[in-house]
Design a protein around this nucleic acid. Sequence first.
RNA 1: GCGGGUGUAGCUCAGUUGGUUAGAGCGCGGGCUUGUGGUGCCUGAGGUCGUGGGUUCGAUUCCCAUCACUCGCCCCA
Length: 418
Amino acid sequence: MTSKKNNLQPVRGTQDILPEENRLHRYVESVALRITELYGFGEISTPLLEFTDVFSRTLGDTSDIVTKEMYTFRDRGGDCLTLRPEGTAGVARALISNGLAQNLPLKYFYRGPMFRYERPQKGRRRQFHQVGVEVLGVASSHADIEVIALAHHFLSALGLDHIITLELNTLGDLESRRSYRATLLNYLAVYKDDLSDDSRARLEKNPLRILDSKDEGDRHIIADAPLLKDSLNDASRHFFEDLQEGLVRLSIPYKLNDKLVRGMDYYCHTAFEFTSTDLGAQGTVLAGGRYDGLVSEMGGPVTPGIGWAAGVERLSMLVNTPPEEQRPIAVIPTGQDTTSDALMIAHQLRRKGFRVEYGYTGNVGKRLKRANAANACAAVILGDDEISRNVGLIRDMDSGKQTEVSMDLIDDFLSKFR
RNA sequence: GCGGGUGUAGCUCAGUUGGUUAGAGCGCGGGCUUGUGGUGCCUGAGGUCGUGGGUUCGAUUCCCAUCACUCGCCCCA
């Protein structure tokens, strides 16, 4: 059995999600759906497959996602396609494809699988699932506030508000980043030879990323580095101040983190992460930021945007109280001649909205045992005697008390178990 | 891509200093109870000891490779 199983392994980093775990996923998604609806978001579904350009042109040539984590291949027509590694680029593409920029602002919710060719780890799969939101066409920080409030609301609704922290930073606008980049490079020039290999490579391509290096030597150097916030121009500073004021007014706690830099190049201004210490090395549960340059870079009209995404698997790991489900009612025929009647009664009960477990085989004892394993609240036992008298024997599975009930009244009687 | 750990029953794990039929608990099947579950007792099924190769008279055990899982790095949700 084991060897057979090993010959039929799923692709590395992918997994079968069995009903028990899917219930949790569905719960997480349903909460996301419910809360985002409160904020006026509509669900958008974009293809899992996009032309590779959609991601490679926008995520940045230096990002890890583009350089080593994409599932990319040529299809039979010779087109270069990629399994989406994240959701934002696809939504931006959809905005352009459908001419949606006519109807700004737009608020979209999305969910579904994402693919990243990474080494699997706790809270990290090659195929994983995200829920996310995007607000397109709003330049003011009100959108940032609203989107972060939504994220906070969502996590609270999942009961996670006490184990997560909101970390917040600003990357400033393009001008601010340019000026900071120069300042930072100037500072780092002295330590050039002391930096880690990774960070030395980043000097050229994306020096901001050196800030969140975990290399100890780097951290030492970074500790005294000039801060991005000192390079912000007035517009960027005001934007960030407005955002923080808004969060304070909404009583959303946050922690400033100068070193927080998002992985993808299209971010500007707001960058935020909700983190938890309960997830091993993968502390980030939900993260996002503003990406005013994305749509135009892709060839569309200049369209500001802000959004976030959250990992469904990671959220599921933190949610330890799965939602209660309706307890079933077991329908148990006891004689050979009663099965068709039992099937009919089960059918009728289901049509009335009861959740019904129908035991296919075995004697009464076995079926009761199975009913018990299914956490049934009641069992309807039907033998020849009951059928001929048009009654059902209803057993309360918690107390063991049994009551004979006329078939005509069975719905009413069972209602109290719901 | 890099480093550490682990692969024995459906699950959680013992064990074999290399030697006939490899164990436990839980779960599953049958029975005590021919119309009554959740407790108890009895009993049964289920393993080419991850896979491939090497050493050996003999490998689940030692060696090598490989795959998977896992923890961490990198990076991210």
